[in-house]
Design a binder for these strands. Sequence first.
DNA 1: GCAGATATGTTGCGAGGGCCTACAAAACGG
DNA 2: CCGTTTTGTAGGCCCTCGCAACATATCTGC
Lengths: 400, 400
Amino acid sequence: MQGVASIASSPRRIRQGNEIAALRALHEFRRLSRADLARELRLNRSSSGHIIAGLIEEGLVREVGESAGDGRGRRRAGRPGILLELVPEAVLFVGVEIGVEHIGVVELDLGARAVRSVQEPFDGPATPVEAAVSRALGLAFDAMPPDRRRLCEGLGLATPSQMGRTGVVRLAPLLGWADVDLAEVVRRAMPLSVPVMVENDANALAIGATYGRKVARAGVTLVLNMESGVGGGILIEGRLFRGAHGLAGEIGHLGLDRAVRVEERIGLERILADYGVRRGLAQPRLADLLRGVRDREGGAVEVAEGWARTLAFALVQACRVIDADEIVLGGSVAALYPLVADRVRTHLREQQEPSFPLPAISVHEDADFGAAFGAACMLHQRFLSWESNRFAAAPSPERA
Amino acid sequence: MQGVASIASSPRRIRQGNEIAALRALHEFRRLSRADLARELRLNRSSSGHIIAGLIEEGLVREVGESAGDGRGRRRAGRPGILLELVPEAVLFVGVEIGVEHIGVVELDLGARAVRSVQEPFDGPATPVEAAVSRALGLAFDAMPPDRRRLCEGLGLATPSQMGRTGVVRLAPLLGWADVDLAEVVRRAMPLSVPVMVENDANALAIGATYGRKVARAGVTLVLNMESGVGGGILIEGRLFRGAHGLAGEIGHLGLDRAVRVEERIGLERILADYGVRRGLAQPRLADLLRGVRDREGGAVEVAEGWARTLAFALVQACRVIDADEIVLGGSVAALYPLVADRVRTHLREQQEPSFPLPAISVHEDADFGAAFGAACMLHQRFLSWESNRFAAAPSPERA
DNA sequence: GCAGATATGTTGCGAGGGCCTACAAAACGG
DNA sequence: CCGTTTTGTAGGCCCTCGCAACATATCTGC
């Protein structure tokens, strides 16, 4: 899969490439006729029909009863096409998150929709790798009926770890892991033989928070996950940018100056502590702070203003390096953003050069299963790419 | 060239892809036999031979008199292969830099070597776009004999401008340009019809400083251009990462804190001014500072130490965002680095978390024609890619 | 010096895929 | 009701690759 060789191709790979392109187009546009598809892929109508025949045979695509119509009921002259769509229930992708305090599982269908999700409390730091993986896989597969299991086409695992491209964990301070071949541990513990991918939770969340809006959004997106720590992930043209060691986007570690890091100022713990001191509360909760800001309560407003200032600084710093045009805020602390959005924008505008375009900022809702969902999305994306193991039994036998 | 369609392929595109792969492999490894190439591209020997026959026909590849041998003279048993190489003089790429004080031109051959370079003084701020472009193209083509012109396969232009992917300049404060379709201006002024690419000078320099070591280096490289201002560019797997607006990597604009920017501390002007104050010099020169540091002269050493500290801070900040594993320092100020390399590394280690791998740092020499060279490299890279206009007259006529 | 081993380059054949053309089918418009 | 337009499908053609076989060129060991 590296460099020069990946360009070369054999006649059979043509077909594979076109099948992938067809599946992606159907995922992106939901419903297309064979003729639409031919235009989209710049193929001949007859080739399009032939490819679709194969995919229907495989059970991945089906004809929709309804006939075409131009989206808004407008019918053009001419014979209407037979609409095609992916068969959502044809395959299944499982995403698992092993967190510090909980384990989560999400099942994704071929339409990249979550069809099931479960969560359990979990004591991460007290659990060795093998036990944690075993527990997580148990939650994912034990209750799954065998005929459903057979539909599984991949498993993604997200954990708060620094890990290399191949799934070797260098360090996971929050879980007490170090130098573990996590992907290998998972593969050994898997009850079925499907592709396994592992990824840092912030990176997985970044994928999940942006996946499916458009399959490949042009531009650069920075996704933040703001809890006690502040993690992040970067997407370039819809693909995750990991950096050299999987640490790209970890803007919580940016320095405000040489002494203080961003996450020590905008993380959950710090803003709650600040709020507690200002209001004389022993155990302040985020909900209290949010209500306080909404009610323009003294103390809460100051905390929110400081948060907005520091967040803006961090975003400006990050944008100067990666020039993002979109920022997505996730994690529980992100709930603060809508309350101080204009303050953040003001600070952004003040700190950034006038000529530098400001990024669009949005909040990612429904992040409950964020990392697990993202991990499953990684396998969905993989299924619709050259790495898909639909071609595993394909031509080149000299490949390990 | 977007998303789904680029995956689709036809038998003719297979051949094109394999020709590209062959050219790239020959560029990367300099000399290969047909059998080597077949292994490299994972093709059959016979296919490899057929592709090479086509490329020889086109005049892009030739057989080398010498026979194989395993690089170090070691001959294996068996019939030795006939070595092949690119024909450097088969084509030509022109790179042009329009700077603030000079115009530069570089000619690149198919081996990505500079075969000619010219430079002229130039008054950038006083020259309107059309005149500047006309002057630059004149320098590039007026003295070029017609049969050499015909070999030209593309022109790259680097200028200190913010510009979009399509070559529209948003703003070029140093040249006084704004909202110009620079690529279009160049195309209209071109004496020949070849692909034109325009790029920000820091980005072009980044490409030039890293091009050709390996065609596609794995990992993330940050290239800095340190003069009065501090610009930068980012390469991911050997490809330029522009960001959403072409501003990625501009780490001179990073904030040291909310008030001061990095380039105000490590840029040429500032360190010379500092040095001048400390030594009571009216017009200090960089050479003096360098000598001072080498001689452990008071004042010079302090300036260098401050520079090292700030540079380290900037690099740490950038690495926390993009997780680079390699940093290349360019521009005249980079000459300071070798004198304080261990100080920089100490500061890096202190400021970065212990678990974060430090990037390798090197200095890019011979940056005289850096941006022009890089601009030419962009077209060399393009020629060895799908965008190559060798396929322009190819199948799809419905493409604009 | 010579046979065997090993690797290269070339040739002919076959398979698979997409393109082109032609044609039937299914709507719409007057 | 007929012409127009678009869709889906079938057959023939061309292209590219893989495979197997062969001639070629070198090394190795006797």
